[in-house]
Amino acid sequence: MIEVEHLTKRYGAFTAIEDVSFSVPKGHVLGFIGPNGAGKTTTMRVLTGFLPATEGRAVVAGFDVFEDPVEVKRRVGYLPETPPLYRELTVGEYLRFCAELRELPRADRLRRVGEVMERVGLRGWERRVLGTLSKGYRQRVGLAQALLHNPPVLILDEPTSGLDPAQNVGVRELIAGLAGDHTIILSTHILPEVEALCAQVVLINKGKIAAAGTMEAVRAQAAPAYFRVSLDAPGVEPAAVARAVGALAEVKVVQPEGEGLRVEAEPGVDPRPAIASMAVGRGWGVRGLERTIPTLEEAFLSIVGREGA
């Protein structure tokens, strides 16, 4: 549904994004993460046709963003970082205007506005002036605006920023409900949200893609899996235990961690059988041998570095 190939955007000498490529299959939700200023918003603006790319190409819903911007825009619903609201208008006036902009047939406009308001939880708010709404409700109106024309592609730039936890859950559920029918790109800071919603993740840093793929792949790529080993070796120095484990061919790095050890191996190698048999051979008891997959947060931090977070 969305194909991005070697996208580069420069503002004069400044390179906002460089050689960004990824793709999102139909009905999937792509989590777009990265620190502030990494190029998330720029990428999204290119995809919505707001900004032209310097190089590379992007195909959204079957149309080239550069060649057929209008066709792309017809098929994309976009919620910018700050909801684009006219403060003087009421919710209803605003959404009806958007419906006209979105070329909805006259007959469908009112019905569609009603549906969308219902869906984002704005029922009964039609006559409220936008300028008086709270941040959460503004975000809902912004979302409603993006959904009006029932676009196959949704591009949401931080849809949950500034919401309280309850509202957060609501939006998350809404997006989850949209997945399947809609192909969604979701940019956010909130990593648990991505973990909850997205099958695919693109991690962008300093304008370049740092990691991409399924959630697991990204996690694995960011920080390889490690093992928590806890052996019961009475009368043996912990350091000696560690040395014994480290001596195994399958094991790369051993570090003490809490009461046990943290063991890293070459990718694709599972050292657990070797550790178990070694322990059994030495008469040590095995309290725990578990494979641990890093959280997205850990992956994020390992790539971006703590100063970037």
Binding site: R45, T48, G49, F50, V70, E71, K73, R74, V76, Y78, P80, E81, T82, P83, P84, L85, Y86, R87, C98, L101, R102, E103, Q145
Partner: peptide, 14 residues
């Protein structure tokens, strides 16, 4: 300033 321009420019409107 308010970002509505972005919305206008990402609508199928010249």
């Amino acid at each position: 300033k308010t970002g509505t321009f972005e919305m206008l420019m990402t609508s199928p409107v010249s």
